[in-house]
């Protein structure tokens, strides 16, 4: 039980609770726009940034963040070049990110252990700087989503109608990409880069199965995200499991439950 009262665990818990609001929220918008894979891509590019951070001795989360934002611009740019092949640009940037990360790993052999916690997540490594970053990201994402929720709905539901009604669609797309990059870079220390996209996409998948309205879907993804992250971190602390993996398996269990509920309803 000691671990649950330990300071490092409480830091991880606070960070997790904040991430479980923003990641599923951004994930809902991405999934509904058929851009679910963007989360994975930005996470992989982020890892290249983290590796570079270790190599040049700069705060790795910040370098990861810069990389993720650059990647989100690159995806948006490629998406405009290859219209209606959004997945192509995502695949290209993703492999580019992994390629860069692998090279940076081999350049700095010494930090392999540290990088591991960024790949799979850890409840031990979150420090106060990380927590501050997570808190700032949460405030930014929540403020934008609350202020622009109507516009984001319109854009997500029908991009052409959004453009016809005068919404600056391009800037909104860039905004969504940047917010996603922020959320992912802030999340990878807890959930791990390889698993962060699950926290974006699986709650959204449950929302699609269960929610009757958009408002309900928004509430549902956050509740499911919170439940999985809090329970997952607790289990990871009690039994010394990888937190990211535990959270993702719990999310998949919730998804199976959602699909069964839906099947029973029909």
């Amino acid at each position: 039980m000691d671990i649950l009262t330990a300071e490092f665990f409480q830091r991880a818990l606070i960070g997790g609770v904040l991430i479980a609001v923003t990641a599923p929220l951004m994930g809902l918008f991405l999934v509904l726009r058929r851009l679910a894979m963007i989360g994975d891509t930005l996470a992989h590019v982020s890892i290249a940034g983290v590796a570079l951070g270790f190599l040049i001795n700069v705060y790795p989360v910040a370098v990861g963040l810069v990389f993720a934002i650059a990647a989100s611009f690159a995806i948006e740019g490629l998406r405009r070049k290859y219209r209606s092949f959004a997945e192509l640009s995502i695949a290209i940037i993703m492999s580019g990110g992994i390629a860069l990360a692998s090279i940076l790993f081999t350049l700095g052999k010494g930090f392999n252990l540290n990088v591991n916690s960024y790949l799979f997540g850890s409840i031990y490594t979150l420090d106060y700087t990380d927590l501050t970053v997570i808190a700032c990201v949460t405030v930014i994402v929540l403020a934008v989503v609350l202020l622009l929720k109507k516009e984001l709905f319109l854009l997500t539901f029908d991009e052409d109608a959004a453009a016809v009604s005068g919404l600056p669609v391009r800037y909104f797309n860039i905004l969504i990409s940047i917010l996603t990059a922020l959320v992912i870079s802030a999340s990878i220390k807890i959930v791990g880069a390889l698993l962060v996209s699950a926290l974006l996409t699986i709650p959204a998948a449950c929302g699609l199965a269960l929610a009757k309205s958009f408002r309900q879907a928004v509430a549902l993804v956050v509740v499911i995200g919170e439940a999985a992250v809090i329970a997952g971190l607790w289990m990871a602390g009690m039994w010394n499991l990888a937190p990211g993996g535990t959270i993702v398996l719990l999310l998949i269990a919730v998804l199976l439950g959602s699909l069964m509920t839906r099947a029973a309803r029909v």
Partner: peptide, 21 residues
């Protein structure tokens, strides 16, 4: 044009006609 699984009510879709710049 839209995804039939999209979680939105008719009312939400119709009011979205009011959202513009």
């Amino acid at each position: 044009h839209f995804n039939p699984l999209f979680p939105a009510t008719v009312r939400e879709v119709v009011t979205s006609g009011l959202y513009g710049r």
